[in-house]
């Protein structure tokens, strides 16, 4: 996979997610699009950290520890994405909580019907 592949893939996911959020009427589908958007951004972050020809940032041997700088990929994007994924998860949980509540109380998850609901 060369440069364009990973970057293009992440931008594609971002674009897809954005369109999904704008165009969908069902709240659950909007949530799914949001997840796609977030995955796209996370993928982008990780692929930014990649360096050709290097290994994962786990220095499992003494020799590796001594001369590590030119040998491993960037550990920071991986840490960032770890956090970002969990944050996205938290958001998704709240969103789904809203969706479940909406469905239980009003019987629908269609956001265009929100204005017409009684309550």
């Amino acid at each position: 996979m060369n440069a364009l592949d990973f970057y293009a893939l992440s931008v594609f996911l971002i674009g897809l997610g954005l369109m999904g959020v704008f165009l969908n009427r069902d709240f659950v589908k909007i949530l799914i699009s949001l997840s796609v958007l977030e995955s796209g951004v996370n993928l982008l972050i990780v692929s930014i950290g990649y360096v050709r020809g290097r290994i994962a940032p786990i220095l499992f041997s003494k020799e590796l520890q001594a001369s590590a700088v030119g040998k491993v990929v960037d550990p920071v994007p991986q840490a960032l994405v770890l956090t970002a994924i969990v944050i996205g998860l938290g958001l998704l949980a709240v969103g789904l909580g809203m969706a479940v509540w909406m469905h239980r109380r009003f019987g629908t998850t269609d956001v265009s019907e929100l204005k017409d609901l009684a309550g």
Partner: peptide, 17 residues
């Protein structure tokens, strides 16, 4: 893509362990 763009990470790698 694929190039070494690290700045602070270099120190993380050096000193982490």
């Amino acid at each position: 893509y694929g190039q070494d763009k690290m700045l602070v990470s270099k120190d993380y790698i050096k000193m982490g362990v």
